[in-house]
Design a protein around this nucleic acid. Structure first.
Lengths: 98, 98
DNA sequence: TTTGAATACCTTGTATCGCAAGGTACTGTT
DNA sequence: AACAGTACCTTGCGATACAAGGTATTCAAA
């Protein structure tokens, strides 16, 4: 059922704080949402391509450099739309639950 | 984003009241969820095949007979699972929103 | 009586999403 | 120089939703 929620959750996560892939997986896991690497990379690439995310390289003390992603201004606007969509879905479900 | 929510919404809708396809489309439209015919038929067939829905034929005053679907006992149990999943998704999103 | 409109059923082809598995490249340590 | 660890990414598969098109039944009007 969580299909399609991933994009929303990731954009929520990156709206204030830059993260690289493992950060994202870890943070979502703490929120009880499991994501696979093979799911995340194409998703981040797509959001980058669409202008909703940007990244910068940062060096790591242990290993190769990392891509830190952050929401762009355009991404903030898209997130506002998703927030509205989320509210609507909640309304829909609550309506059907009665 | 509503991908994957459809199954849940339809099972909520059919838990107390039997409906045929057009009923379902109409009811979901009232709850601001748009569904296409070509989406609904395979979904209903799948839920029927999995034992979560049952149907009975009822004659119509204007046109051919209709398949009225209703949730089975097994469907009720599956719906309980989906309710739990829905609660968890809400928790996840609310956590990420902070 | 036959034709057509309305209704209801269903299928097929396409795009997208998420997962599983596998592959490449950089870093530091042994 | 070799290896383990980390981080990046791609490919193939299954499932879901949409768009479009197709079949069948009913009733009313020509």
């Amino acid at each position: 059922m969580r299909k399609g929620m991933l994009e929303y959750c990731i954009m929520l996560l990156l709206r204030h704080q830059a993260c690289y892939t493992n950060d994202i997986i870890q943070r979502l896991r703490e929120a009880e949402m499991i994501v696979m690497e093979g799911t995340l990379y194409p998703l981040l690439s797509r959001l980058k391509r669409d202008g909703l995310l940007a990244y910068e390289w940062r060096e790591s003390t242990q290993g190769p450099p990392r891509k830190y992603y952050l929401l762009t201004d355009e991404g903030q606007q898209a997130l506002a739309q998703l927030n509205a969509g989320w509210e609507e879905i909640q309304r829909t479900v609550n309506l059907l639950k009665q």
